[in-house]
Amino acid sequence: MRAAAALLARDLRIATRAGGSAVLALAFFAAVVTLLPFGIGSDPKLLARVAGGVIWVAAVLANLLGLDRLFQADYEDGNLDLLALSPLGFEGIAAAKIVAHWLITGLPLTVIAPLLALLLNLPPSAYPALLLSLLIGTPAVSALGSAAAALTLSIRRGGLLLPLLLLPLLAPVVIFGAGAVLAQVDRVENGAIWFLAAISAVTILLSPFVTAAALRLNLSD
């Protein structure tokens, strides 16, 4: 447990340094959302309807941004081999990395999402759903992302491959995440948030083991 906390603390320290990946992901997130009205026009009604979907898609893209570096720095300088020998084991490393990735990207994205929703004219009644869906859904994005990042560990330009691997796998999260927000815009009950919670729970529970398997196959021969 202590080892996991130390790993977590170190990753957070690196990411929050000036110019670290945490700030960059946030800036990217804001930039994508800002770009949208230039593409589809500024009609407030239209923006209100697409706000949830746009914020969700932008959040997923921002999550992919630094994902290839999740294990790569530790892999290249040999830290990963040392970590594997620690009592943490691969599962522990994977879990700590997933938590770190979420704290660095998922949580800040969730916090500033209402601000961007304001720009997109999201009705006030939908804000709780937006926050809740991001809070529940982004950990699943980090969890699936870490598994894919571990799979592409030994590929030099793995970052280019990640979006292709993750796009079909993340579709359900986007569908239910944006669906939960849209339900509040349209004032209907569609149960999306429960499906999102179920998918998220299963993904988070399984991901450390899948990620650990992927790390193992990249380190052993």
């Binding site: 598994a147 894919a148 799979l151 592409t152 030994s154 691997l165 079909p168 796998l169 579709a171 359900p172 569908i175 239910f176 669906g179 999306a192 499906f195 998918i199 399984l206 899948v210 398997a213 992927a214 196959l217 990249n218 021969d221």
Partner: peptide, 26 residues
């Protein structure tokens, strides 16, 4: 390594396919 990584990916996909199918239907 390629074989094992791809196999893990195929299995992740296989587990996800029913979820994808369900979510798209929904």
């Amino acid at each position: 390594r390629a074989a094992r990584a791809a196999a893990v990916l195929a299995l992740i996909g296989a587990v996800n396919l029913p979820i994808i199918e369900f979510s798209v239907q929904w």
